[in-house]
Design a binder for these strands. Structure first.
Lengths: 208, 208
DNA sequence: GACAAGCATGAATACTGGTTCATGTTCGCG
DNA sequence: CGCGAACATGAACCAGTATTCATGCTTGTC
């Protein structure tokens, strides 16, 4: 029961075991990618570790070298997804001066992203049940971005003086709903049409 | 392999076994109610038949007198939920002449319903994975109601001439998002405040 | 008051699937 | 080389749980 002094009880709360070589890095990535495909298509509960590892081309035990539990890959997936989406959006609105135009570009980029990654969409939804904390963090960060933009626009007198937090949730709801229609309900409406209609609604709805 | 002629292959697609006496009726209802509570709080996959039946105060085997599978109670729950919500909304907007006022009343009723039934909200969300067909039907019927109202208002010249289907999805998204904020994110904003802000957004957004 | 259909029981079944482990294999470095 | 740390294997373990089943109870009816 002896051990070096100056050590806490927990081994520094590392997420899974970080690989130390390029080889391990590659394997870990292969597993995450496989998990994305398998969980995305079958859902979390129907996706077994066996499915994931065989899709990744490794043995079942290998999974546990990199992840402590099944839940852990999932959480990481959700995090990754949030990062990707935020990156895509900031990329798409980079350098656009007019705030309303930026809004439009963001909406368009969001719908495109969702359409290109239908699996990712479902994964985030399922996080509400598998990892509620990750789910909340995902939407919180999304809505925060929205809110900051709105507040700035309000200060510039371009947006009506309503509670920016509530407004942000409402606007996010529009994007999300149209995205869901695309992915879950498989409608064929061109994205540009959705963007135009939603943009008019939003622009008229929030102008001062 | 002989059987009476004039019979299809399927035994009339009865959902579960309908009880024939008041006693059975009561037991069946007790199980559904228990399922609502247990699945609502633990989620579908963590809610075992054992949990549900013990919550209902019956033996495990009793469950299978009334439902063929675990999925079946769940589907019935989702259906029931859709019915309840639609009833509540039509109740709340009954007899309101002005369409915009009706919209406001509907929004208020929706948020109140969601707040009073947080479990039900999560159950519908989970249906996307457990019974996608039920999930789609739920939202389809919701959005259809919305669309019909919008089209009527457009014909009366009260609403802008945008695609009513898209508009309906967007507006539904606003309600849903604010409802989710209430239930999943546990914010304490008074419903009336949400209604006012959202109403202004919607009213300005869709006026011709 | 006995018969049968409906209802109820809960132990046994059957199987899935997450996790562990004892045993290799790879590979960079001295 | 050859040593050790990192990585990989896949068979076995085991806990949980949906579903079945043989048996027993209730209740209304003739």
């Amino acid at each position: 029961m002896n051990r070096p002094a100056g050590n806490g009880d927990e081994p520094r709360k590392v997420i899974g075991n970080q690989p130390k070589t390029a080889r391990g890095e590659a394997t870990r990535k292969a597993i995450i990618d496989a998990a994305e495909r398998v969980i995305g298509s079958k859902g979390y509960y129907d996706a077994s570790i066996g499915h994931i590892t065989s899709e990744a081309g490794v043995a079942q035990g290998t999974f546990y070298i990199y992840f402590k539990t099944k839940e852990e890959v999932f959480s990481e997936l959700v995090l990754e997804m949030g990062r990707m989406l935020r990156f895509t959006l900031s990329e798409a609105t980079q350098g656009i001066e007019d705030r309303l135009e930026a809004e439009k570009a963001g909406l368009r980029a969001f719908l495109k992203f969702v359409k290109d990654h239908p699996d990712l969409y479902r994964i985030v939804q399922e996080a509400l049940f598998v990892d509620p904390e990750a789910y909340r963090a995902y939407y919180r960060s999304f809505v925060d971005g929205y809110r900051v933009g709105l507040v700035a626009a309000q200060e510039a007198g371009q947006v009506v003086e309503e509670d920016a937090e509530i407004l942000a949730w409402a606007l996010m709801g529009i994007s999300r709903s149209l995205g869901e229609r695309l992915v879950i309900f498989g409608t064929e409406t061109p994205i540009e049409e959705l963007v135009t209609t939603a943009y008019n609604l939003i622009a008229n709805g929030i102008k001062p």
